[in-house]
Write a protein that binds this DNA or RNA. Structure first.
Lengths: 147, 147
DNA sequence: TATTGTTATACTCTATAACTATA
DNA sequence: TATAGTTATAGAGTATAACAATA
């Protein structure tokens, strides 16, 4: 590996500059996420878990751990709390009895729907772009993410 | 306020669609952030604090709490740990003796530099865009964020 | 009176290691 | 042997409330 020291004067790729701005945009919206958490009385881990779970297709706990980039034992606690509130249920896997599938209850689906609607509202900086610019931005991100 | 239910068929603004894709991109890079944390033996809060602090301009603890969207009492613990490792120092404020200013030590500056270089590397999806597309993306974000 | 920061407390998040049940 | 999930444990993040020092 080539040792690389990034100095103030060194050229940086446009992709890297874009990434830094994206990180800044997301960081500036952190308080909004925390507001949603406290509004629905969910810890951040619980919020992300509920948002990631798919009401139409139960997922094994293992996959949730991967999605949250955390350990299995961590998911146990998060799901314990969501289950205590009646938002999700554990069901034995059909083909592999070691696996527990995570099902979102109707109550959980309603809450998930509200959360997603709130989180998907565009932040103020993106609304400063005009309609055409917003579309170009969206299309570039779609292309990058292969959507 | 107009009650709004977002259905699968309803039109959504391009800005909102872009925001959802940005959130997805950042979520997909979460494991990279966790890798940087464990590599430098920093908890996420400590990482974000060190990244936010400005070596050239000491900041009051209060401002860090605002930047991290958390309580003052929380910052006390995070700074305790960074100070124990000799990465930052508390200094009495010059004009207001209630305030403690956070100074990044040379050791902290070196670590901060490494962290930033690692975190600023563009993620793979953005590298799929060609050079011109990367520039357009960067320029749109600059405009949105007023940079 | 209001603000900055600390302390005490309690709950949550997190990983590691040891464990159970299953494959 | 390997894997999915749980339990126990410990360190870290988090907010609330009460507090000291200062404004």
């Amino acid at each position: 590996m080539v040792p690389m020291s990034v100095t103030a004067t060194q050229r940086r790729t446009a992709a890297s500059e874009a990434w830094v701005l994206i990180a800044e945009l997301v960081a500036s919206q952190r308080s909004r996420t925390m507001c949603v958490c406290s509004e629905f009385d969910l810890a951040p881990g619980q919020l992300h878990a509920l948002k990631w779970l798919d009401p139409e297709s139960p997922k094994p706990m293992r996959d949730l751990a991967t999605a949250l980039a955390c350990d299995n034992s961590n998911v146990t606690g998060i799901i314990d709390r969501l289950e205590d509130r009646g938002l999700v249920q554990r069901r034995p896997g059909a083909h592999d009895r070691r696996v527990k599938m995570l099902v979102v209850t109707p109550k959980g689906q309603a809450l998930r729907h509200e959360i997603k609607a709130r989180m998907e509202e565009a932040p103020e900086p993106l609304l400063r772009l005009d309609a055409e610019e917003q579309r170009v931005l969206r299309d570039l991100l779609r292309k990058a993410l292969d959507r």
